[in-house]
Structure formats: C-alpha cells, structure tokens
Design a protein around this nucleic acid. Structure first.
Length: 838
DNA sequence: AGCACGCCGACT
DNA sequence: GTCGGCGTGCTC
C-alpha cells in the first residue's frame, strides 16, 4: 500500500468493520498517524454516535468521500498488521460464496481479544456550575449527584440509578445542560500473561565485595539469608553475573523445595538487596507444556502406513487434495505427523483441522509430544487470551503447526504447505449460526488453493461428496485397509428387536443380547460404551387418558423430560417447566414418559447391572468447562465401567479396555427424514464400532434394530464402505441430490405465520421465474415449523454441478431476496441463506 | 447488528 | 402530563 508521498496532507483509509453492512467505511487519518497506515492493520474507529469498533484497513486513498464528512480514525492499534493479504482475499471469497457480508466473516475470524471493547461511561463536567442544577429535572439531579459521588459510572448503570428502563432522555437533557460528559472507555481485552520474578539488585554485582557485605549484614537474619542462598543456588551469578538479569520465578524461589518466607523476601526487596520485576510470558510455555517438548519424536510407520504415505506423496504430484480413507484404528495419525514433519523441514506451515470433540482428547497431547513449542492449539474451549496468543504466534511465525477447530482456517497463515482435515465427514465442520455459515472442510480446500498447499481429507467413512470427487479423479485417493498392530475389526452383532419382542425377551429398551453382552464384559472387568443419540430421559411425556402432550410455548416441538431435575425442557430454545402432576387437558394423573434418551438408558442399564459404575456423557453432563475432560479421564482410569452417551462417545476415544459398544437405537438414525440419513447412520455405526477392541482384545458391537434385514446393516457388518457408497450414490443420482447438485437453503422467518408464508411464496415465485421450475423447491414449512416464536418457511434451490453458472444464480438469488427485504409489507420477515446446507 | 430518534398508548 | 413501547433509518 502506498503511504503519503511528498505533499499529500490528508490520507483516507477504507476500513472493514465487523458489522453486517456490505461496504467499507472511509475514515480520515490524523496526520500524526499517516506513517502507520498499512493494509491489514487494526484501527479503532467511532461508528455511529456511540459505538467504538475495531476494524481492519483494507485500502488507502488520498481522496475524501464526496457525499459525507469522513470521521477521523481514533487510533491505529499496531505497527505490524494482524491480518495479511491472503486472509483478506480469502475472507472476501468466503463472503461471496456464502452470500454473507465481509463484516460477518471478520466477526467470525478475529478472536474477540483482538476486537476492542468499548464501554460508555458518564462523568460530571468539571466546568458545570452546580447552581444550574435547579434547571434540571429531579431525576437528572439525582443522576448528577450519583455520578459526582462515584467519579464516573458505566452508562448502563444510569438506568438502575434512575429506576427507569430508558435513561437516554435524561442523559440527553444533562448533556445539553453541559452537566455531564459521556466518554468511551476502551479496553484492550488481551492481557499478556505476566510472572513475578526476582533478581539481585544489579548494583550489588558491580564490585566484588558487594555480596559479601550483604551477607555480613544478614548474619542475624537467617530467614533472609536462606532466601539469598537459595537464589544463588538457582541463579549462579558467581559463575556468570549476566544470568542475574533473567532472575528467577518468584513462586519458584518461595515455594519449590524448601519453603521460604514471603515477608522476608519483601524485606530484602525493601532494603534494595533483591528487586522484583515482572515478565511477559507465553501461556503455552509453562511447565505442563515443556513436559511434552521433544518427547517421542521417533516412531516407525508400519508397512501399510509407509505405503499410504508414499502414495500420498505420489498423488500430491498431480492433485491438490487427496482423500485418505483409512479404517478406524489404521493409524492415520502417524501418517499425518510424518507429512507435517516433512513440511516443517521444508520451512512451511501446516494446519491440522479436527472436530471440536476430537481436539479435547489424546490427540493434542500426542501432537505436543512430537512438535513441542512449534505447535499452536486453537481451541474454542481455550480462553480468549490464549487464542490471541496463537493468532500472534502464527503471525510472527513462531508456530509452524496449528491444530485447531474449524475457526482456525481464519488464522494469519503466511505460507501454508499442508492442510489436514481429519474426520473430514464430520458435520461439526459446518457452522450453522450465525453467518458466515461456512464448511471448514470446503474452505480448507479453498485456502489450500490460495496458498498452493496440499490438502488431505482423512476419514474412515468419507463423506459421499469427498469420496465422489476422489473417484472422479478430482481428488487423489489413498486407502488404508488394515488396522494398525494386531487389532482386528470388531465382531458386529445385530440384535433383532422385532424377534425378541415376539419372544417377549425385550427388557425396556434393551435386547437380551445386549444385556448379556454388557454383563459379560463387566464380569471380565472390561468397559462398555452405549450409544443413544438423544439426550434427556424421554423425548416427550403424554397423558395416558387423553394423549395430551406438553409442548414448548415458543417452538413447535414437544418438551423433553429430564429426570434428575424432574422438569420438561425444550431442546431448541432452552425453555423449562416443571413436569405437571396432572394432565392440563383432562386432569388425569396418569402421565407417562414416551421414547428414550440417554438418561433412561443410564437408568435401565444400572438396573440390569447394579454393580457397574455408569456415567452419562451428553450436553447436560459436559456443559461445565472441564466436564467432558473429567468424564474422559475417569473413564480412561477405569473409574467408570459403562459410558452412556450421544454423538460425543463416537469420536476419538481410544481406550484399550473398551470391548463392547452398543448402539441402542439404530432405526432412529437410519430413518431420520433427511436425504443424508443413511450416510449419517453408516458413518455413525462405523465410527462407534471403531471404539471397540483397539489393541489385543477383540471387540464386539451390538446394534439394536427392528429392521434387522436392512441392507445398510450388512454393509456395516462388513465395514464395507465401497458397497455403501455405491448404493448411496445411486440414490443421490436418482433424486438429484448432492454430490450431483448443489443446494442453497433459504429460510424465511416471521413472527406472523401468514406474512412469512406470503414472503416465502413470493420469493419462490420470483426465483422460479428466473431460474426455472426444476431448480426451485418449495416454499415448504420444515418439520419443526416454529422456533423461538418465529414461523419458518424454506425454499430450497438445487443447481447442477456442471455447466451451470452458479455465480449468476447467486446474483439472482441476492436480487430476489433484496426485493422482498425492501418491500415495506415484508419489513418484519427475516431471510437466512445457507449455502451447502447439511 | 446496534443504536438513536420519533410518534403512539397506559399509567403515577 | 410522563414512561416506555416499538417502528424506522443510519452508520464513514
């Protein structure tokens, strides 16, 4: 970017702000900041009357805007850009592709620690003559006194003081009377981590006798002497006076080994013998982390792994992306590590994407051992400060490898050579709310292209989309069919619920087969995982007399019964109410639970195997910050015998002692009303089975179903991905679903049901007229047609994958939506676009 | 998206 | 009369 040349006095910059408005904002650069103007640098600006935001400079110009008066930048926040050109280009591309605003992307991309947080505060105007208070309203006087008393107060507090909902009118009155001043307090949210350190006062080292004199003076002060001696032990200044500068950790000096007296240390500092100072340290540089440094660098690839590795390198020669299809337990991780090591040796950067859940497990520890402090971990469970440090670390080139969740695609990579998307089929790579509704796997491919990096899509059960492209030759394809070591694939048993029901062998939600297997595993002191893809106790309750069922007041769903708080909850909006004792409709007291969730499975299995220690793992038990971690740890250490859980239990848990996995209700997955149901069911079953029998012990998987002869089950038994894929692809082709088409889902939301329907209908009509009838489906109300008091209508667009101008179609979509949005009659409807919905 | 402004109903 | 509701429009 050009900076001021010669006599250019005024410079303007276009700033990208994290707001959903499709434009840049042009600000004027104060003359003393002109030198600091650079593309990608964060700036602080006033936006509107009161808001202060962080933005990114995307362009500079010597021309003032013609139609408005540009405001001055308030500040330029850094000398080196936080955001690089590749990111800006990538973000722009994403906004275009997902039909959202660049500001939405920025909002998602920047960790909030890099966004400023401004808070309005009120203080009294020192020039105000208090005699003029007589002219103000009673409330204004009250506020004035309160503010004067406390120096300054946060803006929001004024409402409490005045005991009104909207304080603005009074504040406005007072500003006009010049009684108060409003100012914005901006705090940089990122706080570097500091440690307190101690060192000798350097003047004592200037001459040889300095220290001796000190010891003489401390002859009768043993506690202080002890501290000094310990210091000299830790920091050998006699050998090399220069080591004194770095000093020693205060905590270490006081607490490690023999404990020292903090007050004596204080005295030493007071007397100028020691000095205290603080140092900024990395959050990732603590002892815990160092433990892993440079450990376990070497491992050998098995022959199969070596083979796959070579094939990947071969495929990289001609393809940008390669699907690595490796059965569960085949040891894909070692191959990834090898590939990353290659990249590091070549001086490049690597990004390793994992689904959120897999990231909180052993994988990270594993990678830490290999890559030590070259590895940055970008996790949503980490604090914001930590995320800022990773961002900066990538920016400064301190990390050559990043493991992270989907949002790590936004990090300031300069030169990526490799991107790995592990568990590529995972649906959690897609962000649903809010915009940008992006798919991290797809964006990894785009990012890879921009960096000319190679991309690996790894999975035991690749998504139909990816595998299709691999088969077509657009991606490379490498398969690993052997399980690592001697591990064999688990034996898969179909428990036929229909048959057992006839034979009256069913026990609640359990087949006798599954119960027997669980008992036998527990007898052998082995561990069990039970999978039930629904949380709560039962998805609804019902009056036995009249069939009345409590539903959510804001959503079109029944309320789920939760046993331990004995309440009913809506899983869509969080609404809760006590479980009614009598039927609201007929007054009967016979209210029964219907259907099964994790809590009920937990209860039932506990009854069947009373001695077993059962733990449930779902959103309800893992919400607490370390809930998930804690359960995993307990399970790993054998404090839990049976783990009952949702999706969560299917991912990345590798425990040698788990020999049995039960899928409680396979039908629920297979017959879910969605064209991806079979794919999900297959993936789910294979992934869950992968948890059984890892090393020497043989594993078993029991799948309970009322449709024991369903063809999908046969494929699952043989872990026959190819077979599943062929059948599925045929179906997709027949009904023109992805990967043969691209979908865009447009959802129209409105509190007024009829208005929403009208808007959706008009939108669909406009689209049909311009895109053709076969590309527009709906409008149609989704199965759950009301969430949070908003009625929903969906219009689905279906586009050919080939010989179709997608860009043009998206343009048309934007235009048609614009028409609805600007139509005053539809003012109250809201339109959400989801490109490539899942 | 936020946030101010402005015009209407329901209360001390 | 005042308070607060919400509809409307703008943000460099």
């Amino acid at each position: 970017m050009q900076t001021a040349i010669g006599e250019i006095q005024t410079l303007f910059v276009d700033v990208l702000l994290p707001v959903p408005i499709p434009k840049y904002f042009r600000y004027r650069v104060p003359s003393d900041m002109v030198e600091m103007v650079q593309k990608g640098v964060r700036v602080m600006v006033e936006f509107g009357r009161r808001r202060i935001l962080t933005g990114i400079i995307v362009e500079s110009s010597e021309f003032p805007p013609s139609s408005y008066q540009a405001k001055y930048l308030l500040d330029i926040l850094e000398e080196t850009p936080s955001v690089n050109d590749k990111q800006l280009k990538f973000w722009k591309w994403m906004a275009d592709y997902y039909l959202c605003h660049e500001g939405d992307v920025l909002q998602a991309a920047l960790p909030s620690g890099l966004k400023l947080n401004s808070q309005s505060r009120i203080q009294v105007n020192p020039d105000f003559d208090e005699e003029d208070l007589a002219d103000l309203s009673d409330k204004a006087v009250r506020l004035f006194r309160a503010v004067r008393h406390q120096q300054s107060i946060p803006y929001e507090q004024s409402a409490d003081i005045l005991e009104v909902k909207s304080p603005y009118p009074y504040i406005k009155e007072m500003i006009q009377a010049e009684a108060i001043i409003i100012y914005e307090e901006v705090k940089e949210k990122y706080k570097p981590k500091k440690v307190s350190k101690v060192r000798l006062n350097p003047t004592l080292l200037e001459n040889a006798s300095g220290l001796e004199e000190v010891f003489t003076s401390l002859a009768k002060k043993p506690k202080q002497e002890d501290i000094l001696l310990k210091y000299l032990g830790l920091v050998p200044v006699y050998n090399d006076p220069n080591v004194n500068d770095a000093g020693v950790d205060k905590k270490k000096l006081l607490e490690e080994g023999k404990e020292m007296s903090p007050s004596s240390l204080k005295t030493l500092v007071k007397n100028g013998i020691l000095e205290e100072f603080s140092e900024v340290v990395s959050r990732f540089d603590d002892a815990h982390f160092q433990l892993y440094q440079n450990m376990g660098h070497d491992f050998e690839l098995s022959e199969a792994q070596q083979n796959a590795y070579s094939q990947i390198l071969e495929s990289f020669k001609t393809k940008d992306a390669t699907v690595l299809h490796g059965v569960t337990g085949s040891g894909k991780t070692e191959i990834y590590i090898k590939l990353i090591q290659d990249v590091i040796e070549g001086g490049g950067q690597a990004l390793f994407l994992l689904p959120e859940i897999a990231l909180s497990t052993q994988m990270v520890v594993r990678l830490m051992k290999v890559f030590g402090d070259q590895l940055g971990v970008y996790h949503s469970r980490y604090s914001d400060n930590e995320r800022v440090e990773v961002w900066r670390g990538v920016n400064e080139g301190r990390f050559s490898v990043i493991v992270g969740v989907r949002s790590s695609i936004f990090l300031p990579f300069e030169d990526l050579s490799l991107i790995i998307v592990d568990e590529e089929h995972e649906t959690s790579y897609k962000q649903h709310e809010p915009a940008p509704r992006y798919h991290a796997r797809d964006m990894a491919l785009v990012l890879g292209r921009m960096h000319q990096a190679k991309v690996i899509l790894g999975s035991a059960t690749p998504s139909v989309e990816s595998y299709y492209l691999a088969q077509k030759g657009q991606f490379g394809l490498v398969s690993l069919t052997e399980r690592f070591g001697n591990a064999t694939l688990p034996e898969i048993i179909i428990a036929d619920l229909k048959k057992e029901r006839k034979q009256k062998k069913l026990k609640g939600d359990f087949s006798s087969r599954l119960v027997d297997e669980v008992r036998s595993a527990i007898d052998k002191e082995e561990q069990v995982i039970l999978f039930q893809n629904r949380r709560g106790y039962s998805p609804f309750v019902m009056c036995e007399e009249c069939s009345w069922t409590p539903t959510c007041p804001s959503c079109a769903v029944s309320l789920t019964y939760h046993i331990y708080k004995n309440d009913l909850r809506c899983h869509y909006c969080g609404y809760r109410e006590a479980t009614p004792k009598t039927c609201v409709s007929c007054g009967s007291t016979k209210i029964k639970t219907v259907g099964t969730g994790t809590q009920k499975i937990e209860e039932e299995i506990q009854n069947f195997v009373p001695a077993a220690r059962v733990q449930r793992m779902d959103q309800d038990t893992t919400r607490k910050k370390y809930g998930y971690q804690q359960i995993i740890e307990d399970f790993e250490q054998g404090h839990i015998d049976i783990l009952v859980g949702t999706q969560m239990v299917s991912k990345g848990l590798d425990f040698d002692n788990v020999t049995l996995v039960g899928i409680c209700n396979m039908d629920q997955m297979m017959f879910f009303p969605d064209f991806r149901a079979m794919e999900r069911a297959f993936q789910m079953a294979v992934q869950v089975s992968g948890r059984a029998g890892r090393k020497s012990k043989e594993g078993k998987v029991v799948i309970q179903t009322y449709n024991a002869d369903h063809p999908l089950l046969k494929k699952i038994i043989k872990q026959y991905y190819e077979g599943f894929f062929r059948v599925e692809l045929k179906e997709r082709h027949q009904y023109s679903y992805p990967p043969f088409t691209r979908l865009i889902k447009v959802t129209v939301k409105s509190e007024d049901q009829l208005l929403g329907e009208k808007a959706a209908l008009q939108l669909a009509k406009g689209l049909t007229r311009r895109l053709g009838i076969k590309r527009v489906l709906g409008p149609q109300a989704p199965t759950i047609n009301k969430i949070r008091n908003k009625y929903l209508q969906e219009v689905m667009l279906k586009f050919e994958r080939q010989n179709f101008d997608l860009l043009k179609a998206k343009g048309i979509l934007k235009e048609e939506i614009f028409i609805i949005e600007t139509e005053p009659f539809f003012k109250k409807v809201q339109i959400v676009i989801d490109v490539d919905p899942l």
